[in-house]
Design a protein around this nucleic acid. Sequence first.
DNA 1: TAGATTGTTAATCGATTAACAATC
DNA 2: TAGATTGTTAATCGATTAACAATC
Lengths: 209, 209
Amino acid sequence: MAGVISESVIKRLPRYYRFLGDLKAQGVDRISSKELSTRMGLTASQIRQDLNCFGGFGQQGYGYNVQLLHGEISAILGLDVPKTAILIGMGNLGKAVTMHMNFDNKGFRIIGLFDAKPSLVGQVVRNLPVRNAEDLDEFCRENRPEVAILCIPKESAKEISKQLINLGVKAFWNFSHYDLMLENQDVIVENVHLSESLMRLSYRMKNED
Amino acid sequence: MAGVISESVIKRLPRYYRFLGDLKAQGVDRISSKELSTRMGLTASQIRQDLNCFGGFGQQGYGYNVQLLHGEISAILGLDVPKTAILIGMGNLGKAVTMHMNFDNKGFRIIGLFDAKPSLVGQVVRNLPVRNAEDLDEFCRENRPEVAILCIPKESAKEISKQLINLGVKAFWNFSHYDLMLENQDVIVENVHLSESLMRLSYRMKNED
DNA sequence: TAGATTGTTAATCGATTAACAATC
DNA sequence: TAGATTGTTAATCGATTAACAATC
């Protein structure tokens, strides 16, 4: 089993979870690393190495029990651990994230929505009222959210993240073009940089032809 | 200079581009790999190695000219190359992507929006009408889009991507939970898997404390 | 038992970092 | 010229793959 898990392994975990979920839904009971590797486009070796970072979930001569492994990975990812979150920035992206994502099945519960723009304040999205960004301090002191989802521009992200860290928020799902972790070392940050993703597509179109 | 560039380098390119853009906006003329490395949280060595995959853009004793390097990376990423794109799936996420993203400054032009849902067809988003998914064939034959942006569920993604590939689409920006490249080897795919990103955040919250 | 497939160690491959001669 | 900093080669580190003994 393991001490510290490499980024490479962590990055692959959710994908294992997805494929195992699919197999489970298809009623598949067991699967070998070989068979899974074909489906996922990996090597069997890598799958066994990855899983063995966390424990011996398989059985020689048999393979892995799909349902059991699916559950183990869910636990490893902490999807069963309840986490409270707030979302800042209810523009197009913030609204879409609020409405589109399945937060529940990953243990996240959105408890507050915020925006600075008066025209948005008061609107109701997914049963939650959009609150005034000015009330952020008070809300956080009362409700102690653990996670903040940032759907705001770079400039606001810098200030507001600082404010939120002072209010005890320790994890960020960051859609803004601002590198939180550079100025805040011990905060947990997961970035979604859509622009960077689109630029990589541009690069590949130019070069892979 | 270089033959084939590693994924690791490609992944970092857009971030260089962003930081150089910021420096340019701040009126900074030149920067050394050392200084840039501090700002970006990398090593100077890595920056020089990365850039030298594409050419010698610096000057000994001086460093790099910000404006020039910014332009070079733009060219490397192909941001100046015009690319036509269509977007399939005008739910919350599709709408947000359409309205929120700056496609222009990366060379992308959205020429068509599609959805299968009658209530969405006919709506106008960012000056474009949402078209009926049934008209996809005809539209593609007439307008030959190069890229498709998939904001649809997994099941539809499988069918529709196949259809689009047959219609000559060769690159995908994929927001769906479907692994396009597994079944379509020579197609260019850039994935945005928001669920996987959120699960990684969950993992870190459980483990980095 | 025999066959299959894991868990794990060893070998390979690639990416990052360090070092330094070249040169502006 | 002297100082600074690149471009590039060599050393290190880490991740992936291969191999195989353990075992179900």
